[in-house]
């Protein structure tokens, strides 16, 4: 991501229809939503639109250049690159949502518990996160996949574990400040039990900054998965997957550059969509940030 490692915590309220409404009004937001929608549709219904079966070999058309028949060309087994790029979007979108959701769930759980209960629990959780931070992120993801085994879910889980401390930190900070708020004292006095307090009072107030972080993490997660997949740690072949397509395509880069061009284009487009959308969500949920940002970036 960009330079600012510690964005201020957003404080604004979150209402769903309002959020969507504001996003559509935000100029980056509408654009990001549109591309996102396109990718999600491709992910869901891609197999119907795709001109070919993404895994069908065509030995008469090995490594053929883009043509009317195969718009994006074919690979070394004669598989249609366009169909494979479309099919790969399924994996990319799924991993982004899956890993960020898991990271959010783990992080919020840990953050809220350590912020709310404090003391020993907090110290233990903090120290264990420090240990996770002692690994470079990609290295940690790689070794986790090695432990968990390959596959879509395991890769998502590995990425989620790597990114969960960020969610935990932000959730912990909010939980800490909410914990001492008067409405929490009031709830305790009312005799509300601890689980209810956590669910009813802490969680809803912790979520807005967490959602902003989640939105901003989608592109990072997608790219992390692409790297894993490129290194051969993603879903198993023959499933089409941008990272592994690039890895394979590298061998034919001089004779069939389309094999690396199109997956790269798709990857970068999805990344941009996630980024633009993430920024838009942050702007909408945390207006204070956008104003300070505009002085320093593109003017």
């Amino acid at each position: 991501m960009s330079t600012a490692p510690s964005a201020p915590l957003p404080k604004t309220r979150l209402r769903r229809p309002y959020l969507l409404d504001q996003l559509l009004r935000h100029k980056g937001g509408a654009f990001g939503l549109a591309i996102m929608a396109l990718f999600i549709l491709l992910a869901l219904f891609g197999r119907m639109v795709a001109p070919y079966d993404p895994n069908a070999n065509d030995y008469l058309n090995l490594l053929s250049a883009p043509s009317a028949q195969h718009w994006f060309g074919t690979d070394e087994l004669g598989r249609d690159t366009l169909s494979r790029v479309i099919d790969g979007s399924r994996i990319a979108v799924a991993v982004a949502f899956l890993s960020v959701s898991i990271a959010m769930a783990i992080g919020v759980l840990i953050g809220v518990i350590s912020g709310y209960f404090g003391g020993m629990v907090d110290s233990v959780l903090n120290r264990s996160q420090d240990v996770l931070f002692a690994f470079p992120t990609l290295l940690l993801a790689i070794i986790l996949v090695a432990v968990l085994g390959p596959g879509l879910f395991n890769a998502s889980l590995a990425i989620a574990i790597v990114y969960s401390p960020r969610f935990a930190r932000i959730a912990r900070a909010s939980a800490l400040s909410i914990k001492t708020s008067e409405y929490l004292d009031a709830a305790r006095l009312a005799g509300v039990n601890t689980p209810t307090i956590l669910v009813r009072h802490i969680l809803p107030n912790v979520m807005p900054p967490v959602i902003v972080l989640a939105a901003l993490s989608m592109s990072t997660a997608q790219l992390a998965y692409a790297s894993l997949s490129f290194l051969g740690l993603g879903v198993s072949p023959p499933q089409a997957d941008w990272g592994s397509m690039l890895s394979k395509g590298r061998d034919f880069i001089t004779i069939a550059p389309w094999l690396v061009i199109w997956p790269t284009v798709a990857l970068v487009m999805l990344m941009l969509a996630f980024n633009v959308l993430g920024d838009a969500i942050r702007d909408v949920l945390d207006p204070s940030h956008s104003s300070s940002k505009s002085t320093d970036t593109l003017t």
Binding site: L223, A224, A226, S227, G249, V260, T264, V268, M271
Partner: peptide, 10 residues
């Protein structure tokens, strides 16, 4: 913003 392997490929 893009992963290093993309830069490598490019």
């Amino acid at each position: 913003s893009v992963p290093i392997f993309v830069i490598g490929i490019l």
